[in-house]
Nucleic acid binder design. Structure first.
Length: 742
RNA sequence: UGAGGCGUCGUCUAACGGCAGGACCGCGGACUUUGGAUCCGCCGAUGAAGGUUCGAAUCCUUCCGCCUCAACCA
């Protein structure tokens, strides 16, 4: 199983709180629930790593579950592919389940719903049901079968299962509320008839549960505690809870939480679109190295470790976001940097004759695989009179800043001697056909000071002793950052996403690479010996990713610099009438519950304005979604609380502490105030003592404050206020603090 | 139009009433037989307006913007 990520996020916060509250008996069980109707992609990787990571972090369990409730689209091929992908990415799961394993039990639950009047068989056609559901602006209406007797529904449902009806003849529906503001709760479908062959249950069933019914039950049956899905299921949560509440009790009771799905620039992450790319032969298959599928990325040479690093870097939150693909590329490079030996390969060869080297002499140069760590071993690389260098490493008329070969220029050949270009050999039509160069036999190898003497270092191979190899140069599949924004995403395809370097030559050692080997081709990028097409002695290399290329950037740099803060100007002094905020009184009057609460509080303490202020600014926030009348604090108690503040017995700060306590625990304000020691400290020396304690505890901050970091006054003041339980007057604390800080 | 969710450097993400932090990108420098790597530095943000508070990214209000939901898919 994957290692536990270190960072925290809103989900770890939730789990921490659950654990602290003793929920689920301290268990943490997550699940990754793919539907076996396609292959997994980078977006799933985020989800897999999240669920596996959470389980690892809390020493819990993670289930792999195939959500196979739709027989028409699901296939065994996919369940096998998905298992291989998950295992590759995250390791072994704690348990493997199939939704279809629970069909019988789900069916039993459905009968129970019918018997309890919470579900009924609707015999209307699809169109009628849709019409009756209403829409956002129009409540739904009851259909003619809504009040069908339970016995009749039960009989019909059993006959549905028995196969007495054709597809679409009737459905099982939950009886919830046809006028529910959440349209998902307007008597949602639970079961539909599908006379189709299921990849696991065969023809045993002809009715299949819908997602919203099946998913919560699968979670509950499996003992899942935290059911984590993506944001678009937020509205479904209400139905998820309805199903579980109707069929409980459950221990543990699963809870659904939603996070933002992954979106990345220059790619698409939708099963439908990926399937289209495959079906229309825009790519070679699901595992085409340009595909963002796990299979594709694996074949590209990307490792699970790189993906895990990426997942950790992007974090988990609820913001809709599009991650810069540069972030993925960074993780890939960082991972490869540490794991790949460096080899020599020339993709587009330009012949070089070393005129100063004897024609028949070949010297085997020992070059370390890891230039920075020669101790990790090396190999022999043949050097001779006829060499090949990269065509793009020579320029007839070098631009400014050129650090490669050009007429008269001297460079270092990686791992070998210095080389000077003496003469350009022209072909029949005047093109550069080769170079005649001289080497400097005295140039030491290695030579730490070389950088000062030559303009750059080039990769090279021996012309005769190097070997041909197919090298596939992959680039981003899409040329536009947001292919989805285009009206047809296919139009954003990058025509240059694959180039094959057919004339490429590699040093002998690389020609012996085995499928699955990884190398950095010096100065060019990271390459992976294709596991499918490589043959012994004839590897096919996939470029996983290029090196960062600081030389290629000037073209980009020519773009205009980022606009300096094009901030929308603040609307000049908003007119008082326009966005006028309602007064406290108006707000209270507008809400009957607030008005009643305020009135009752006033009976205990007649100061309308301060009661209103505490009510609106503090109590409301503390109450959150709870209604005021369900709080353990009565309106009268609240009034007595405000009276304590107004009487000066509570400072505002202590008041907030006390109010928070009263809202959770209840109790009599004055009594709790005394129990908590919150009553205002008027005694100057007691406050001074608190200030001194705070200063002693914050020695480093005090030193920094004295050194000039005046912004730390807030921190120190806060510390002093806490020492005094908030019971000290803030002005007095400030005064004493300033006095001591000089 | 109803319901739900989300707004923090260009991008992703922290800060749970008290120092707006980190990462990627970008820019600059050091170092380097990879225009790579490494190291150092710089740049740069709380959607807006009010309110509460000694103190607000955080609590309250209003406004603005974005996303999701009206499949017998998941």
């Amino acid at each position: 199983m994957a290692d536990a990520p270190r960072g925290s996020n809103f989900l770890t916060d939730i789990i921490d709180a659950d654990l602290a509250a003793g929920r689920n008996g301290g268990r943490v069980v997550t699940r990754f629930p793919p539907e076996p109707n396609g292959h997994l992609h980078l977006g799933h990787a985020k989800s897999i790593l999240l669920n596996f990571g959470l389980a690892a972090r809390y020493r819990g369990r993670v289930h792999l579950r195939f959500d196979d409730t739709n027989p028409e689209t699901e296939e065994t091929e996919y369940v096998e592919g998905i298992q291989a992908d998950v295992r590759w990415l995250a390791g072994e799961w704690s348990a493997l389940h199939y939704a279809s394993d629970w069909f019988e039990r789900m069916y039993g639950c459905a009968e129970r719903l019918i018997r309890e009047g919470k579900a009924y068989v609707d015999s209307q056609p699809q169109e009628a049901i849709r019409e009756q559901r209403g829409d956002f602006g129009r409540p739904g209406v009851a259909g003619p079968f809504r009040d069908r007797p339970a016995a009749e529904s039960l009989d019909l449902f059993r006959r549905m299962r028995a196969g007495e009806f054709p597809d679409g003849a009737c459905v099982l529906r939950a009886r919830i509320d046809m006028a529910h503001p959440n349209v998902l709760l307007r008597d949602p479908l639970l079961y539909r008839i599908r006379h189709a062959h299921h990849h696991r249950t065969g023809d045993a069933w002809c009715i299949y549960p819908m997602y919203d019914y099946a998913h919560p039950l699968e979670d509950a049956f499996e003992g899942v505690t935290h059911s984590i899905c993506t944001l678009e299921f937020e509205s479904n949560r209400e139905l998820y809870d309805w199903v579980l509440d109707a069929l409980g009790p459950w221990e543990p009771r699963p809870r659904q939480h939603e996070f933002a799905r992954l979106a990345v620039g220059y790619t698409v992450l939708s099963k439908r679109k990926l399937l289209q790319l495959v079906n229309e032969r825009r790519v070679a298959g699901w595992d085409d190295p340009r595909m963002p599928t796990l299979a594709g990325m694996r074949r590209r040479g990307i490792t699970p470790e790189a993906l895990r690093d990426f997942a950790e870097r992007i974090g988990v939150a609820k913001n809709n976001s599009v991650v810069d693909i540069g972030k993925l590329e960074f993780s890939i490079r960082a991972d490869l940097e540490g794991r790949c030996p460096r080899g020599l390969a020339v993709l587009d060869p330009l012949p070089v004759t070393v005129t100063t080297w004897p024609a028949d002499r070949v010297e085997e140069i020992e070059i370390p695989w890891w230039p920075a760590e020669p101790g990790r071993g090396g190999r022999k690389v043949p050097f001779g009179r006829e060499l090949l260098v990269e065509r793009e490493d020579f320029a007839l008329e070098p631009p400014e800043g050129w650090r490669r070969l050009a007429p008269g220029r001297e460079v270092r050949l990686a791992g070998a001697w210095r080389l000077r270009c003496d003469e350009v050999v022209r072909g029949p039509s005047g093109e550069v056909a080769g170079l005649r160069c001289s080497h400097d036999p005295s140039s030491p190898r290695p030579d730490p000071g070389d950088r000062q003497r030559v303009s750059g270092t080039l990769h090279w191979v021996h012309a005769g002793r190097s070997r041909p190899a197919e090298v596939r140069l992959y680039d981003r599949l899409f040329a536009a950052e947001q292919p989805d924004a285009a009206e047809d995403f296919l139009s954003a395809l990058n025509p240059a996403s694959l180039a094959v370097a057919r004339g490429a030559r590699v040093e002998p050692a690389l020609a012996e690479a085995r499928a699955g080997d990884r190398f950095q081709f010096l100065r060019q990028g990271w390459f992976f010996a294709d596991p499918v097409d490589s043959r012994p002695g004839a590897p096919v290399f996939n470029r996983t990713i290029t090196l960062k290329d600081a030389w290629a950037r000037p073209a980009v740099r020519a773009e205009p610099p980022r606009p300096a803060k094009a901030r929308a100007p603040a609307p000049a002094a908003a007119p008082p009438g326009g966005g006028r905020t309602r007064s406290d009184d108006e707000r209270i009057a507008a809400d009957p519950v607030l008005a009643a609460f305020h009135r009752q509080a006033m009976a205990a303490h007649g100061h309308a304005a301060s009661v209103a202020r505490w009510l609106l600014n503090d109590l409301l926030g503390l109450a959150r979604e709870r209604s005021l009348d369900t709080l353990p604090l009565s309106a009268a108690g609240f009034g007595r609380f405000v009276a304590l503040v107004d009487a000066g017995r509570l400072t505002p700060a202590a008041g907030k502490t006390l109010l928070a306590d009263l809202v959770t625990r209840g109790g009599e304000p004055e009594e709790r105030m005394r129990e908590l020691g919150l009553e205002r400290v008027g005694d100057r020396s007691a406050v001074a003592a608190a200030v001194d304690r705070a200063l002693a505890a914050q020695a480093p901050e005090v030193a920094r404050y004295r050194a000039g970091e005046k912004k730390l006054l807030g921190v120190l003041l806060g510390a002093a206020m806490r020492q005094a339980q908030g019971a000290a007057d803030a002005a007095l604390v400030r005064e004493l603090l300033l006095e001591r800080l000089g």
